[in-house]
Nucleic acid binder design. Sequence first.
DNA 1: GTGAAAGCGCTAACAC
DNA 2: GTGTTAGCGCTTTCAC
Lengths: 324, 324
Amino acid sequence: MTPNRPTMNDVARTAGVSLKTVSRVVNGETTVAPELAARVHAAVESLDYRPHLGASMLRRNDRRTRTIGVLLDDVSHPFSAALHRAVEDQARAGGIHVLTGSLDRDPVREKALTAAFAERQTDGLILAPSGAELDPHEMPVVYVDRVPTGATGDTVVSTNVSGAAGAVRHLIAHGHRRIGFLGGDRHLSTARDRYAGYQRALGRRAGPAVHDLHDPTDAERAAVSMLRTADPPTALFTTQSMVTIGVVRALRRLGREHSVALVGFDDFPLADLLDPPVTVVAQDPARMGRTAATALFERIDGHDGPPREIRIPTTLIARGSGEL
Amino acid sequence: MTPNRPTMNDVARTAGVSLKTVSRVVNGETTVAPELAARVHAAVESLDYRPHLGASMLRRNDRRTRTIGVLLDDVSHPFSAALHRAVEDQARAGGIHVLTGSLDRDPVREKALTAAFAERQTDGLILAPSGAELDPHEMPVVYVDRVPTGATGDTVVSTNVSGAAGAVRHLIAHGHRRIGFLGGDRHLSTARDRYAGYQRALGRRAGPAVHDLHDPTDAERAAVSMLRTADPPTALFTTQSMVTIGVVRALRRLGREHSVALVGFDDFPLADLLDPPVTVVAQDPARMGRTAATALFERIDGHDGPPREIRIPTTLIARGSGEL
DNA sequence: GTGAAAGCGCTAACAC
DNA sequence: GTGTTAGCGCTTTCAC
């Protein structure tokens, strides 16, 4: 057997003091005689003692684990990854640690992971909701990217409707009248809101639309079909970067990248190096992550106001593909 | 005050059984009369009881938290993010959860986070080491991406030397004799190994080299200077994707993207859509993550063989930029 | 099959 | 200032 990790009792014995004195020193209380404190520190060093956070939190009055959960669509997706990193940075400033999970928009997995995090006593949750939430997560939750239906909690989302409308108006301003829409999962508020923005900008002249696209492959296929119809759109609006990328591939394949305009919602790395460079409505995932983390920490610290719906502005970045 | 979460005691009282019977039911032991078990289940439902993992693990014989730590350079970097995701998927299969952190190659942060994870009793660690490790992490550690000096533990790395040598030989095969090198932090085995591969392929005809580059901005500047020297290289080899991207920008800026060849170590999204498409030595971060997770779980389960150094093969993907 | 008592590592409350 | 006792929520051990 490996030797067990030393406990406070071991430290107390080697330092020749009581358990409680060790506890005081370890927790930085100042009401300990310097000489005793020194002996405790020496014992901690020599035994390589590390406090057991689980045990201390079990007895402590403020039952905090100083750990939060972050549940996003896919930690390897650039948007989720940037948001995750920003949460982590914000958390580090407060000595908070982060449990992560990818949900792939699967409500079953969402339920399993929120339950598992609750068993681990996370202090709160940042969650990209799968759709309808039933609430009792038994801890503060801040929703990101999408507004859940039925749940109460702070929400941090992009200005999806106005961002999408702005993108489409940009295309209209460049002379386009027939504008195709390629979007994601309509169960989610994000896709619905961006479609609403598209419709608002076009009024009753809305063009062909394909929904429920997830990955570049689906999107490429959908775009090719759309452009091969009898009266094809002269411009396309896409609602997420994975769809945008698929559409870029489709346009290349058809040799139409310089004749069909494109604006995508959500920026992505290297969009500016493509030919033509891709015009996007950029979100600010880092700011979303920081904002969500800040809101969550306020809730954990007892803030008890009504649910807040925080909208993070988007920015249209004209690079070329939207100005054809 | 918010009502406290129910405990096993509360469940026992509502079900009219002893605490221990609840414990048995919750842990799925079969030695409980069906009728009692049913009453317990009903009480669990009605109180919305959730076991307290920290408390159970405190008393349990196999002191497992079923949580591991994953510490990488930057969870928002595509390579780290893909590796992270693969670890998560492998962990999920075993009901294991993941604490994450970005180290930015900072040994201070590495020390702080490994200590914090140890206090949280993680069962093991997957770590991209900052350099020299002092070992006692008090738990199994699998190193990824880089080989640490001075530590013992399984390591999962790409075939860096042969991958780099292959890339350079590819350039030589396309007629290049003067090949520049742009690489990362020489404190780390990754950069050193890739430089060794470069040197091995070129023998004494090694070209100009710039080291310790991290981000695209630095790399762009370095590449511009290198190409403006008296006897500039006709081809470039870069050792990481962020450097490769900076070099692509430099070549564009100088209008040399079709005259100076480029092969980069580590693939990146959209490399195939650039002009010219970028030839790379692709790593397999997903496989690295799966392999590291598998190795770690074996160690956690008591496997006690000598440290293993597992090499994941790389693949040269010729796309155009390396065949000029 | 079920339950009572002890104790995991630590902190709270209260004595000295 | 320091130590003692009790107990956080749970599992173990062992008695019934």
